[in-house]
Design a binder for these strands. Structure first.
Lengths: 194, 194, 194, 194
DNA sequence: CATGAATGAGTATTCATTCAT
DNA sequence: AATGAATGAATACTCATTCAT
């Protein structure tokens, strides 16, 4: 048990080091040796947990993405109304992106870069299903515009990524009032007009 | 004259090769030798036009960003109404992102990655001023929601980047109808409610 | 223990390869890859033992210089008379320069070239102190001319470098008789006239 | 004539640039492009005057060496006594080494380095003949010790190189008094004992 | 499991030299 | 004669990965 825990700790240390370093220096300037050093293990040890650098970054991506979606849907319940459900999910996502910004930055970099395997990318997308289901329900009920999921995501969720990056660069600080405005904008762009 | 043109051609070939290769393989997997080969010059020749790899990618970024904004505002005129002006600019931006998708992909990668110097990033932002001026006018006239520029950008412009990337990955194809929907969503997220 | 010895062996092999190659081809024509090959290690291995090429050559200089002075004073004893002491040291130096000529050649090249860091040069000079002390004693006793240490070195020790180089170029062969003449010349140039 | 003069000027500028740069940075850190820049010509122009880098440095060596010997013997006359002749030559050499120290430094670097062709080295030695003749005379007359020319050079002339280098490094300043001491040491090391 | 040492294959960059003008 | 642009062949150095311990 203790041994297993130590293993998990090491794996986590490696994942976290990868996130930190890739965030700050970029994938191209993040050598395995630096990751090892930050995780306080030998470079060789990385290869006990991951096949190679590509695998390390793929697995990191999947893990972070999975944390992200778990967080997003943690307080959501399918019995909620579409409107309420969307608000609940949106706010959790906003929370994650702005508070766990290191993780969110890492995802943003992965999503805009040929740095992740296509397969891992697909794997990462899967977990968004509850949101897509909610939207399907919303469209059927005439509450949500009959747009493709990509379009809905582009206008209601993705802007949060941009705001998160901007905030991380120090250009802007998002407080409660602005978050409300953001939600308002998100909702008004996808809710069906009466 | 002919010599000058040859120089310009070579520089352009290098810039284009950089865009192509960074788009497909990522900055980390784009060696100078490959760029040189694609541009049909010797590796050493790159250093006649750029100081080093970082400078090459910085200059490429600034050039592409500058083309992007020039394209965005080419048909815009300050005498237009806010509503018309926004539509004109938005459609040009959409055009650029979806048709010149290689350039747009390159910008997206640069904007989400520590691959560009902060200085070059700032340089790239400058040219967006006409849009910010338009928004200022719209806010004064009560036509546009009184949101920060970052917020307006996040909801009305940035979603196009997400749609562009998604289309480039083959997940979706944006036709005229969907572009209209996108514009509708963009506009409704920033226009002031009556 | 064995591992440590292997490390020391490798470091020594690198130092020796550096001496050999710099002697024969000059610093400018001695690539790291050649040094590695001669030391039977990979080029990358050099960087486990030295920071870079400059560091390798600095450290080599300091090591050789240190061997040189250790050799020079090995049989000297401060209780000796000035005359005897000088003879003992001079003969050891002559021995070193003429027998360990590869090392002596390397030092000569370093001493006449901007190939070594100033800091390493200073480090190398330090160890000559016993000779300077001997001269101080000699001057006090009126046995040695009241000249600066540089002057004494120039006339009594440095000529050996010239002779060593000339011998190495094959122009001359120094046998016992000529060594005696050389010592005679050295001594007569610095001993106080009665 | 004017055209010829311009050519000579360029050649001289190249030679001087070579001396300066090799003195300050070392042969290994002196690229042709830098030499060209300092001489205010194009890199390609160097090849109109010299075959290649090796040739440039060989020719520079021969030229400097030749200036050196011309200077050394300029005021010497074979009708002088051995003692007077030696003093005259020695003082001119000292003058050259300490006043034209850039040239002297360059020679010292060449003489202790495999940076010059053997052939050019031989060519450079030739011009010392008058000194050797003087010594031959001195030995016959019993005024000079019956030592080989190398030995005489090592003790009476070469120390000046060491003193010149030391002075150039700033460790010591040779004034008139010290020059007299140096001459005294030089002479006493080679003059025959009565 | 864990590691530090070792490395081969690469990478950015430089440089002596050439060539079209 | 003179040049600036161009380049192929190096070169110092890095890094993902392996292996003996």
């Amino acid at each position: 048990m203790a041994a297993l825990q130590k293993s998990i700790d090491k794996r986590n240390a490696l994942i976290n080091a990868t996130i930190d370093l890739v965030n700050n220096d970029g994938f191209h300037a993040t050598p395995m040796s630096k990751i090892a050093k930050m995780a306080c293990v030998s470079p060789a040890t990385i290869y006990l947990y991951f096949e190679n650098k590509q695998d390390l970054v793929n697995k990191t991506y999947i893990e972070v993405k999975s944390n992200y979606t778990a967080y997003a849907f943690a307080t959501y319940d399918e019995s909620m109304s579409v409107e309420k459900g969307f608000e609940v999910i949106w706010k959790r996502i906003a929370d994650f992106k702005l508070k766990e910004s290191a993780h969110a930055m890492f995802l943003a970099q992965c999503d805009n870069t040929p740095m992740i395997d296509e397969e891992s990318r697909q794997e990462g997308i899967k977990h968004l299903q509850p949101l897509l289901d909610l939207w399907a329900r919303g469209k059927k009920e005439g509450i949500i515009k009959p747009l493709s999921d990509y379009m809905l995501y582009a206008y209601s969720i993705n802007p949060l990524s941009f705001l998160m990056i901007t905030q991380n660069r120090g250009s802007v600080k998002l407080d409660a009032k602005e978050l409300d405005q953001a939600f308002e904008a998100a909702w008004s762009s996808i809710k069906a007009c009466k």
